[in-house]
Write a protein that binds this DNA or RNA. Structure first.
Lengths: 349, 349
DNA sequence: CTGTTAGCGCGTTCAA
DNA sequence: TTGAACGCGCTAACAG
């Protein structure tokens, strides 16, 4: 049978000291001096008895749970990358991650995060939001509660709370340069065919900050090269439309500059349309995506060239930011953090 | 500023009762009778003061952290599905999930799970292992510590600890039936071409329980139909080998019965080989995979027909099993749980 | 400089 | 229905 739980009291007795010394040794308490000798004795006792601090008792005293909540949609494949990044930072700082998925659709089960905070189960919150997320009511609650908080990809244009996002503008330039670079000389002039920008859209994404930035970045890129932008917008999940589009634009050769699509999640539809038309991606048609939600660089055939949003780094940075808030007190201004995207060279361009 | 923390003491005074009553109301303590009247008064006070139980203090007293550890490889995309299932069960039982990734490669950072248990941060452990995982040293430690534990997909053939796994045998039959069903009449006799079974292999998977089961299931399926099995084994990550194989077998028509591959993760290579040979999957070549790690039913073009391992349900069941262990005491026998796989009908067969 | 004593934090539970 | 003790570690004030 497992023997009785070992407490600091046991350790103290075993080492012939008082419990405060045990605590001092464990925490390197500055105020309390401990001779090297006793220190060793305590550590020895700890080892012998296999003593472990009771995290609850410690938390109760210190007021820190040493846990951060990670809230996000478990259906989103890239949530894992975020968690990985968070994990790394947390590990380095001795923190744990409490997983809090947002299961239901519309409902604000975010409020349970605040409950967790009030219960002292967590010291801070990281939410993985989509780029159009900006619920100011939630932001108010967070501020009201005084809980350290940061949103990943949400609240891009709202200064009330901290947030971290990718440089969507830069990501478009990256993609377009790659697309154009493959076409001929690096110094391609206005004569070279301009890449077509295909913007998939859903009701939620219309006024969206990310989409707007991408669109503008496309326009600017074209302007810099003094060629006219060719923007197309399409409803999401309309594979037949995609096919029609492809057929039409191929007939008149207007796709010779390649195609940049905003969401990789629509790329399978695109590939499928090409498949039906017996077009070979990467040969008859050069394609890139402005994100990599579907991990298309590894899974699609031919491998998708795309831009990678750095969710891993975002997670790590998010944790750092939240921890900063904890130290900084409540007067600290919300931070807005931006990270660069990177390029995946596949076979599709 | 956030006002001072509200304790049960404040609530008690506000409601004109003693703290024990507050506790009794909150926990519906059976032994203690509380009049409807006082009950209401307490709830009212709780509401007015916005009181929240301090989780640490409660845990300290009850000895339950109300947390389960989820350990697994954050690089594995299906870990998310497992978490989703765990989340669902946990939510229903008032539990939280503490995320504990296994970051490094070989190192046994699993031991930190035991530390967490000794620290009373968690009440139980669920690990997401691969099918060849069977570290009996770890199992011993777990038993020794007396921590409720279950492995998902590990320890299939070791009875010392609880585990939960998919019915890999059944999954193969499912796939083969689908593959054969598409070829002609349901009552296809020995005359119909037999599907080829392609087993990708790595050093770790050789003696592997899952692979052996799949192989045997294939043999049995063939035996039932009195046709001779056609098994092929290939080293993983050898795209050129795959291409050679495809070319050869197509020339002699031996792939007319279709192809079943054990790992979907090698399917992109297969698709790529077909792509190079200008073969059209689903038309010139019918393909299925025995798992769906890569989510090929949605991402690949044409959509992959495959078998789905029910990670979501496994996660939910795993949590239930761990909670059962907590109630049952340490005399309870380890459980071995099996779940059925299901079929995804795609376009590749 | 080294180490001790006493009291706290907060909810739960058992004897009264 | 209540008072009092308890669980376990932290830390300020204090003593050698």
């Amino acid at each position: 049978m497992s023997r009785k739980r070992v407490t600091s009291f046991d350790v103290a007795r075993r080492a012939g000291v008082s419990r405060s010394v045990v605590s001092a040794v464990l925490n390197n308490t500055p105020g309390i001096g401990v001779s090297e000798e006793t220190r060793e004795a305590v550590l020895e006792a700890i080892r012998e008895l296999d003593y472990h601090v009771d995290a609850q008792a410690r938390s109760m005293k210190t007021g820190k749970s040493m846990c951060l909540a990670a809230y996000g949609n478990l259906k989103h494949p890239l949530f894992l990358q975020l968690l990985e990044g968070m994990q790394k930072s947390c590990e380095a700082r001795g923190y744990q991650i409490l997983l809090c998925s947002g299961s239901r659709g519309g409902g604000q089960d975010r409020s349970k995060l605040l409950t967790l905070y009030h219960q002292r189960r967590i010291d801070g919150i990281v939410t993985f939001d989509d780029t159009s997320y900006c619920d100011t009511a939630w932001a108010e609650e967070v501020i009201q509660a005084g809980v350290p908080y940061i949103s990943v990809e949400g609240f891009a244009e709202y200064d009330g709370v901290s947030s971290i996002q990718a440089d969507y503008r830069g990501s478009i330039a990256l993609a377009l340069d790659h697309l154009a670079g493959g076409t001929g000389s690096a110094a391609a002039g206005p004569s070279a065919a301009v890449p077509l920008y295909l913007e998939m859209a859903s009701q939620a994404s219309s006024g969206n900050w990310a989409e707007r930035n991408r669109r503008e970045a496309y326009a600017e890129w074209c302007a810099r090269r003094s060629c006219t932008p060719r923007l197309l917008q399409l409803e999401e999940s309309r594979p037949d439309e995609l096919e029609k589009l492809l057929a039409g634009h191929l007939a008149d050769g207007s796709l010779s500059g390649g195609l940049l699509i905003n969401w990789s999640s629509s790329v399978p539809d695109l590939y499928r349309a090409a498949w039906k038309l017996r077009l070979r991606i990467g040969e008859d048609l050069r394609v890139m995506a402005a994100d990599n939600t579907i991990r298309g660089h590894k899974l699609l055939v031919p491998a998708l060239s795309c831009v990678e949003i750095p969710y891993g780094r975002m997670g790590a940075e998010a944790v750092e930011a939240v921890l900063r808030q904890m130290d900084g007190g409540r007067d600290k201004q919300p931070e807005k953090i931006w990270l660069q995207a990177s390029l995946h060279r596949g076979e599709s361009v």
